[in-house]
Design a protein around this nucleic acid. Structure first.
Lengths: 228, 228
DNA sequence: ACCTGAACACCGTTCAAGT
DNA sequence: ACCTGAACACCGTTCAAGT
């Protein structure tokens, strides 16, 4: 018998940085940030924890590489060839939003990444559209940064929410529970919050996110220098 | 000799939730997020790690209480009695910004806090100004959320930066090094980023932050319903 | 009621030893 | 060159035992 039909541990390919990172992404998606352990990852790759260190310097770099790979793929997939600058920015922002939605840990790690390289990719693509919007040079950095910060903020909050959530509760159920909690706040101290609790219940995360982008875009367009 | 002039361990007051939290804030400020250990905290309070659990359910709650106390104090100190809505929002945002500056860990933990209560305080105060700006009811939630997300995004980035920084490097030195790194990026892939690298060098964090707030405020004011 | 600190079940990371 | 896995130096958290 030359080949064993069911090897219990298949060590298909040799270990590689690439395989490690994609296994890390898988683990992050399934068990969350806390579940990404060198021991768990090693088991997943049918090896010992030490082996990983040959390809990766440590946990920080591993997390960084994981987001980088996810964001890079997402950003590359956004097609803004025939779009107006505004449309392109919305498409880009939505791309990041959907990536966070699929991988909630991206939201937290986006800011934590020491390389900053995933953020830099987004920043560059936003910036090009800012230029296309004829924003004066001196204000271009501000405009692109504002959009970037907003996107990061939403990412962080979304990640925080999914982290708080029981894995089985769905969106509307969650929003309902928050809205109910808000309605029970002290009427004097939290008058506004109580008042908008209803809007929270019927809100769509993606639309709300885009509405925020549009607010900033309105502000940016007000900076526009004349054509010609 | 009734009193010992130099008691080596002074256990002034009994342990209390309050003392634990303020010791936690002190530790976070001095040794950072990673340095806040139950063992270190216990030593600081001249007790054992187990004692802390009598007053606090665990590390998550402790961190939450720590930001809550810092943000609550900051927010309470912001006086917006005689300000226009725009001025009040700027003052509020700057308050949070300065709190983050003094306590870099706040930036990260603001989103992580499970109670969300520090964010809720800010949200409420922003919201009241949004109402004063005569934003239509249906858009009030969006407007307040956008400002909130932006503030959180900047907070997160700031925290990430100070975390990356060697404790001794100062602001301008850091900005210079980032600007230099940006100038060395691939000219085709990062044309925009290279282009604004100069603006990064001469930028003021606080002003940049406020400029972003103003962009969003411009967008919000465009939503304004007519007076009367 | 509150505190103590040893003990438990984990971590990330290192490193001698293997192939 | 690459992998192995025991070992080290930590964690947060628990809990019997003390006051």
């Amino acid at each position: 018998m030359a080949t064993n039909p069911r090897r219990p541990e298949r060590r298909q390919e040799p270990l590689s940085r690439e395989r490690i990172i994609s296994a890390a992404v898988e683990l992050l998606d399934t068990v969350g940030e806390g579940g990404l352990t060198f021991r768990a990852l090693a088991k997943h790759l049918a090896t010992g924890p030490g082996a990983i260190y040959w390809h990766v310097t440590g946990r920080t770099e591993l997390l960084g590489a994981a987001i980088d790979s996810v964001v890079a793929t997402t950003i590359a997939a956004v097609d803004d060839a025939d779009a107006t600058p505004q449309e392109a920015i919305r498409a880009l922002a939505l791309g990041v939003f959907d990536a966070m939605d699929a991988h909630p840990w991206v939201g937290t790690q986006l800011t934590h990444a020491p390389s900053h390289s995933p953020m830099l990719r987004v920043f560059e693509r936003i910036g090009r559209q800012i230029q296309a919007l004829r924003v004066p040079e001196a204000a271009q950095f501000t405009a692109a940064s504002a959009l970037m910060s907003y996107i990061l903020g939403v990412a962080g909050q979304n990640a925080a929410n999914t982290r708080t959530l029981r894995p089985d509760t769905d969106r509307t159920e969650f929003l309902d529970s928050v809205a109910t909690a808000w309605k029970e706040l002290d009427p004097d101290e939290y008058a506004f919050t109580r008042n908008v609790a209803g809007q929270l219940r019927e809100h769509d995360d993606r639309e709300e996110f885009l509405a925020g982008i549009d607010l900033i875009l309105t502000g940016i367009i007000a900076l526009q220098r004349p054509t010609g």
